[in-house]
Structures are given as C-alpha cells and as structure tokens.
C-alpha cells in the first residue's frame, strides 16, 4: 500500500472511522446510559448530564437493590457457560481428531449432524425440555442448562476443531507411533501440544455462544438458583415502582460486556481464523 495517494489514504481512514463508529456505537451508548442518574435518564441526551456510579452500586455493592438478582446470575452464567464449554471442547476434540485423522465410515454423517444441530431452532427444543426437566427435577438447576447448552457448543466446536486439526503436521504423530507409542499416546504427546491453540480458540468461540444464550436461560429457570445473566436482565425492576431499571440494566450490561471486549481485543486474530476456518475451508 506504499503507492497510495493522500486522497486514498484519507479515504481509508474515513472508512475505518465509520466502521469503528458503527461497531462501537451501541456499546458506548449503553455505557453512557449506565452513568446517568435517574433524572439524567430522561434528559434525552447521549452524554450523562451528571455522572454517577450509583447504577453500579445498585448491582454490585452490598445492599444494592438489584444485587441479589445480578450477582447470583453472574455466577450462574460463568459456571454454566464454562462447564458446557469444557465438556463440549473435550468431546469435540476427540471427535474432530477422529474425523481429521482416522479413516472410518460415518464421518460425513457426524459432520452433517453437527451442521443440522447448529441450525436447529432452539425454541423447538425448549418446550419438551421444559416439561421433562420439571418432571425429573432438572428444572432451574445448573445441569438443566448445561445439557441443552451442549446443543449450542458441541456442533461449532466439532466443525472448528476438525478444520484446525486438518492443518496439523501429522508426520509427528506417525514418528511417535514408529517410536513405539500407541495411537493414544501419540495423540497425547505429539498432537495435543500442537492442537492446543486451536482447542483454545474453539473454547473461546463456544464460550461466547453459551454466554449469549437467552432462550434456554429464560425458559428452563425460575429463580436465581440457575438463571444466567441475559435472562436475569429481563427481570430487573427499579428500586421503587416509580424508578425505571434502565440504569441498573445498563450497568449490568457493561459488566458482562467488558470482559468479552477484552478477550476479543487480545485474541482477535485467532477468533477470526477459528470462525472462518470452521465455516469455510480456507
């Protein structure tokens, strides 16, 4: 791009600024809302007329009116998303290894199934589960969400990992086998270290998907015993009946968004390659 004229350069900078504004605007918007006072909420202005931490105190500080709603849901979200990510990535690692490496019938069936599951309408799954979970006691529990979350995290993990595993130099594994290692030892000692970055990226993507869930969260829980953050946000109410929960919801939204943005900033290159490799073989 050395031969770019000044005009072209300005053009690219303008385009970049437009993309930045478009991508970040809603986030900045809700960030500003989270710093508004109750009176400031109704100013109809983008920037808070008066800045306050009050909304963060409402959801985080002891005695805050939305604290019992928010903190347990944050714990639920982190725990449930982490467990379903770990389970999915472990299972998908074995599955994708077999697909990328071994010769057996049914590979295409497994990949097609994963594809079909990933486009399955979640609402069609939730009605029967709602009924079943209530009768077997899984309603409003962590396992009651972890199990259906696997329908979200497993397919994408299998696809992404299979794509990653196809690019690993497998001669190393053969070398290990020649040296007398069993296939499983070769897998563990020679392949796992090489595959780790792909597994890690897959875990991030799977975690995002679990963290984003709303339909299961709102349908299969009823108390803060298992209700994850997105579902909890829709249950916020104001400190009194005359107060809107807008500020508290905005503050909670920022608390769950900031870690994601940081992860995106740190691992953006990997996430992009994971997303595109899993989707279109490049």
């Amino acid at each position: 791009m050395g031969g770019m004229s000044t005009k072209q350069r300005i053009g690219w900078v303008v385009i970049t600024v437009v993309v930045l504004l478009w991508s970040l605007f809603p986030v900045v918007s809700i960030l500003m809302t989270s710093f508004k006072t109750q009176a400031g909420l109704f100013s109809g202005k983008f920037l808070p007329p008066e800045w306050t931490w009050e909304n963060y105190a409402t959801i985080l500080a002891p005695g805050g009116s939305a604290q019992d709603l928010f903190l347990p849901s944050l714990r639920n979200s982190i725990g449930i998303s982490l467990i379903s990510t770990v389970v999915a990535v472990v299972l998908a690692t074995f599955c994708a290894y077999a697909i990328a490496r071994l010769d057996f019938r049914g590979k295409k069936l497994i990949l097609t199934t994963a594809l079909a599951v990933s486009v399955f309408p979640v609402v069609s799954i939730v009605t029967p589960l709602f009924n079943l979970w209530r009768s077997i006691g899984l309603y409003d529990t962590w396992p009651g969400l972890i199990i259906p979350y696997l329908s979200l995290t497993l397919p994408i993990s299998i696809w992404t990992l299979a794509a990653f595993f196809r690019q690993i130099p497998w001669e190393l594994e053969q070398a290990a086998q020649v040296d007398g290692a069993t296939p499983f030892q070769a897998f563990r000692k020679a392949v796992v270290p090489l595959a780790a970055p792909g597994v890690f990226t897959t875990a991030i993507i799977a975690f995002f998907i679990a963290w984003n869930d709303f339909v299961y969260g709102i349908s299969l829980t009823s108390t803060s015993a298992a209700r994850p953050v997105p579902a909890a946000l829709s249950f916020f109410t104001g400190a009194s009946q005359f107060e809107e929960p807008t500020g508290a919801i905005s503050a909670a939204a920022i608390v769950v968004t900031v870690p994601i943005v940081i992860v995106v900033l740190i691992f953006q290159r990997r996430i992009v390659s994971g997303l595109t490799q899993g989707a279109v073989k490049g």
Binding site: W12, T16, V19, V27, F208, P230, L233, T246, T257, V264
Partner: peptide, 26 residues
C-alpha cells in the same frame, strides 16, 4: 487498518444479543 476494522467488527459478534437489544432499545 485491517487489524483495526477486524477488531472493531468482532465487538458486535462478541456482545450478548440481549445486551445489544437493550442498547438499541434505550
């Protein structure tokens, strides 16, 4: 510039849909 654009567009991808819905709603 590509790096900046790519990072920027990953922000909407990573954000919880419910959060984005509230942001637009408010």
């Amino acid at each position: 510039l590509r790096g900046i654009v790519r990072t920027a567009i990953l922000v909407p991808y990573g954000i919880v849909t419910v959060v984005s819905a509230f942001a637009w709603f408010y």
